[in-house]
């Protein structure tokens, strides 16, 4: 399996803080790689650095063999990287339709893709012409994910999609992400919900203090309770 995304010795400074301290990671093509870790470990900064929203101060980031660490965010997005930020990041003043048209960069919306998205998130069809700001939290998250998958992307960076959502919505999201995975998408997924991580992840990376402290298969971590407790301070069993 070839690696679609590779980070080598990546450092990121935000102001005077040294957040990422030499990250090395690889995201294999067609697989879901989970990025886990305690709050403040540097997971979101990793995604934002890949996306160019924070500039890496040192190190290399390659996407499909191409160096991207010095590219601007729009150029990285145009290379086929979709980003779903945390906290239900939709454009509140625009309608659901306008949000999706915008994500398709004003090209025509693919009806088949749209029907597929509506299959998972029927609420988006129901509130098609409503302002995104008037949607519930779960619906906003659905829209946020729909925006990232409305066009085929090489790589999806998704930041805590289940955060703050009701269990029923979480299940719908997991099903959707599984379906995206079955379609062959490559995903780097930050997640605090262990159940979701186990359901979706092929590989896992665990971060602490701005470095990767563990890498391996998700199934292996899910089966190893002492390792979970050592790395993350809680176990999957306790979480279920």
């Amino acid at each position: 399996m070839t690696d679609l995304l590779k980070l080598s010795a990546v450092h990121t400074h935000i102001g005077r803080y040294h957040i990422l301290q030499g990250i090395d990671l690889a995201v294999p093509q067609g697989q879901v790689t989970m990025l886990l870790g305690r709050n403040g470990a540097g997971k979101t900064t990793t995604l934002r650095t890949i996306m160019g929203l924070w500039q890496a101060s040192r190190g290399e980031i390659t996407l499909a063999g191409m160096r991207i660490e010095s590219l601007a965010t729009p150029d990285i997005a145009r290379l086929g990287v979709g980003y779903v930020p945390e906290s239900m990041a939709v454009f509140s003043d625009l309608t659901v339709k306008e949000n999706l048209v915008l994500a398709a960069r004003d090209g025509p919306l693919d009806d088949t893709q749209l029907d597929w998205i509506f299959g998972f998130f029927p609420a988006l069809r129901r509130f098609w012409l409503s302002r995104a700001g008037s949607l519930s939290g779960g619906q906003k998250q659905m829209l946020s994910i729909a925006r990232a998958i409305i066009e085929p992307r090489k790589l999806l960076l998704i930041d805590e999609p289940t955060k703050g959502l009701a269990p029923a919505i979480v299940m719908a999201l997991i099903e959707c992400l599984k379906e995206i995975k079955r379609k062959g998408a490559t995903i780097l997924l930050v997640e605090q919900n262990f159940f979701a991580a186990r359901e979706l992840g092929d590989n896992v990376l665990v971060m602490d203090n701005g470095t990767i402290v563990h890498r391996g298969e998700m199934a292996a971590l899910a089966a190893d309770v002492p390792l979970q407790e050592r790395l993350l301070g809680l176990s999957l069993e306790a979480h279920q």
């Binding site: 996306m51 929203l53 601007a72 965010t73 729009p74 997005a77 145009r78 980003y83 930020p85 990041a89 454009f91 509140s92 003043d93 625009l94 915008l102 994500a103 960069r105 925006r147």
Partner: peptide, 12 residues
Amino acid sequence: ENRFRAEALGFR
């Protein structure tokens, strides 16, 4: 609304 989000969608 959010310049960074717009950039993350590929808009210069």
